[in-house]
């Protein structure tokens, strides 16, 4: 009987006190936005106190696969516009992909002074583990690979490479010193907790641009908040935060 009482108590805890928000918004976002978008959402939430807004971060490729498999995301901010373009082509997006920012990759380390390093230094024997994001589905990983290939370092660096699930995971691998150096997003290197250590900005001529695009998904087609938030992302408040995190912003003609 005591067990029954415990179970009842657990049920009350689990099912009691549900809150129902009038509006819901589920955002899928590339992991490079993790800190910038959190800041932007703080502002947005304060102007939309009744809305329940959730954000899920991951690699753009993985988010795309999830959307193709029916994930309930209203709007998707990708680190590479090619993913939203694919969604649009396949009928999973309601709006044409539009650019909201351009990202950059940097060398970053907690063990070494990355600001005085170049990609060539990664071959030094003192550097044993280099973290990049999974090039197959994480745009920042693919750009890191392109830059290393452009310099002819890719083959030689292979044995040192470790792969993060997405760019935030990659940054975490370097932050925890599990990897000596990493190629991460500038937006993450500028996050206050990481900005204590310097970075080296990788020449953007070495890789394709990280043109970041968003779409309102088919799932979010009837969600007015999705459109509203997308508009907010290109507004002044959001732009100021995005610039703080090192994103290069396109000119908007409005």
């Amino acid at each position: 009987m005591r067990i029954l009482g415990l179970v009842t108590l657990a049920f009350c805890f689990v099912f009691g006190g549900h809150t129902h928000a009038s509006q819901r918004l589920m955002i899928a976002a590339a992991a490079d936005l993790r800190f910038a978008l959190d800041d932007i959402l703080t502002i947005y939430r304060s102007t939309h106190p009744n809305a329940q807004i959730e954000v899920v971060y991951g690699s753009s490729g993985k988010m795309t696969t999830q959307i193709l498999n029916g994930a309930p995301y209203d709007v998707f901010f990708s680190a590479d516009i090619s993913f939203p373009e694919r969604l649009y082509r396949e009928g999973f997006a309601m709006t044409k992909p539009s650019v909201y920012a351009v990202g950059r990759i940097v060398l970053w380390s907690k063990r070494h002074d990355a600001s005085s390093m170049t990609l060539h230094d990664l071959l030094q024997p003192s550097i044993r583990r280099v973290a990049i994001a999974q090039p197959a589905h994480a745009p920042y990983g693919l750009r890191a690979k392109e830059a290393l290939m452009e310099l002819g370092l890719w083959e030689e660096i292979q044995p040192k490479l470790v792969f993060g699930e997405n760019i935030a995971h990659t940054a975490q691998m370097v932050e925890s010193k599990a990897a000596d150096v990493g190629i991460i997003a500038l937006s993450l290197a500028l996050f206050p907790a990481l900005a204590t250590h310097g970075y080296h900005l990788i020449d953007e001529q070495l890789h394709n641009p990280l043109t970041q695009g968003y779409v309102v998904t088919r799932y979010g087609r009837n969600n007015a908040l999705a459109q509203d938030f997308a508009a907010f992302m290109t507004g002044q408040d959001a732009r100021a935060i995005m610039e703080e995190f090192g994103f290069i912003l396109p000119e908007f003609d409005d």
Binding site: M26, A31, R34, E54, V56, Y57, A71, A171, Q172, L194
Partner: peptide, 22 residues
């Protein structure tokens, strides 16, 4: 499940997410 808050984001995934967010 992905990691959707309130629907599929259980504790183990929450921990993973916290670690990733450092």
């Amino acid at each position: 499940g992905g990691s959707i808050p309130g629907r599929t984001k259980v504790l183990s995934i929450m921990i993973y997410d916290h670690a990733e967010a450092m």
